[in-house]
Design a binder for these strands. Structure first.
Lengths: 216, 216
DNA sequence: ATCCCTTGTGAAGTTTTCTTCACAGGCTGA
DNA sequence: TCAGCCTGTGAAGAAAACTTCACAAGGGAT
């Protein structure tokens, strides 16, 4: 788990970084060029790839899409001299996930590494378990209306909701409320009022955002 | 456009930062405490909020969810002393979007600011065609992975896609590709390469937007 | 030519999601 | 107390979504 690939033409830097990572219990492999890195990637996979932008041979920037092709799931952190905002933006647009400004302190470096590993873990968990429920929750028109209503009104009683939605059969609404509850978008106060959970608020925000851009 | 709120109890730092931002053509307002910031947010909205974690009164960490409530679409960057990885991770989990390690150089600071503004702009580009179609397209894990893959890779051949998805039965992938095609998310080049349509790119953006807001 | 990989199609079957209906306990106001 | 509304549950059927299987045309390499 948590394998890391360090790509830098500066021998001293890349070995230092690899050592630091190993000391922190993170298995690290180093590569001296983009091509070297691409070879490594064909043989094994890494969770994190630290990539220098300025290198002889294939440079880091052009390597990003190639790396992405071989390792679509890895996180790519580019290491950039802080002169160039432009460069860093471009790298992210090419498919990098994060950047770290050179020269950096080891602490800052480890912070970036840890946070990005954290994100890979989170992505994996979310991807498997929750996202299905979440998108399933939003995939239905009635449920979307419900979220928007609750977002506007705060709390609502069941039958008020049914009437606001203009649905004749209240059990149909009930069904969808159950789905929303199981998706973690809504819950009920002790006195039976329905309200959005934190996740539900996020979903509603996202929805209103999308709707707004539709109107424009 | 691009309004920024600087929240720090250190008077000198926050005025310095605000001045630097103004010099770069970015309108900045400063707040001396979390409560002060929350008041500001009730009156006007900001694209970016720079938030110190350590402050007297309501501390930055507990302020994050409150800020999120008032400004769900702003980007929050926490400023953290680089001692504590734990803190930064926690801040991101609370709903922050990025972090910058104190002390920082002005160049590194501006880089972070610029990149995050870039990201807000990217989010705003999203325009949806049809909500049902989009959410239905996104309601399936395989289709989400496909969109993300194509978003990263640009164009892919069928079997490469199948292998990247690690699905044994290619006809299953075919089914979902058909759904995506019928939803108008992908199409095929004359030489059979699959690629995202404009709508597909929007959907992929929407997807990453939702994922990001869920990460918080 | 032959073999194998690519890129499909279509139908049948399975699973999930959605709708409808029958029913029921609790509370409220007359 | 009784009628009537509120807030549900559960089962059954319909519809949609998804998976699996059988098969096949075309292209490329040996």
């Amino acid at each position: 788990m948590n394998k890391i690939l360090v790509v830098d033409d500066d021998r001293e830097l890349r070995t230092t970084l690899a050592e630091v990572l190993e000391q922190e219990g993170l298995p690290a492999v180093s590569a001296q060029s983009a091509d070297d890195a691409l070879n490594q990637l064909q043989q094994e996979s890494f969770d994190l790839i630290l990539l220098d932008l300025v290198m002889p041979g294939t440079d880091g920037m052009s390597a990003i899409p190639l790396i992405r092709k071989l390792a679509p799931r890895s996180r790519i952190i580019v290491m950039t001299a802080y002169a160039s905002v432009q460069n860093a933006v471009q790298a992210l647009q090419q498919g990098a996930d994060d950047y770290i400004v050179k020269p950096f302190k080891i602490d800052a470096f480890m912070l970036t590494v840890r946070l990005n590993l954290q994100k890979t873990r989170f992505c994996e968990e979310t991807e498997a378990a929750d996202l299905d429920k979440i998108f399933n929750g939003l995939a239905n028109g009635l449920r979307r209306q419900t979220l928007q209503l609750l977002s506007r009104q705060g709390q609502m009683r069941f039958m008020d909701l049914v009437r606001a939605l203009e649905i004749e059969d209240h059990t149909k609404v009930n069904f969808h409320l159950k789905v929303l509850r199981e998706s973690g978008f809504i819950d009920q106060t002790p006195n039976k009022l329905y309200e959005l959970t934190t996740n539900g608020q996020r979903a509603a925000t996202c929805l209103s955002y999308i709707c707004k851009s539709l109107e424009a």
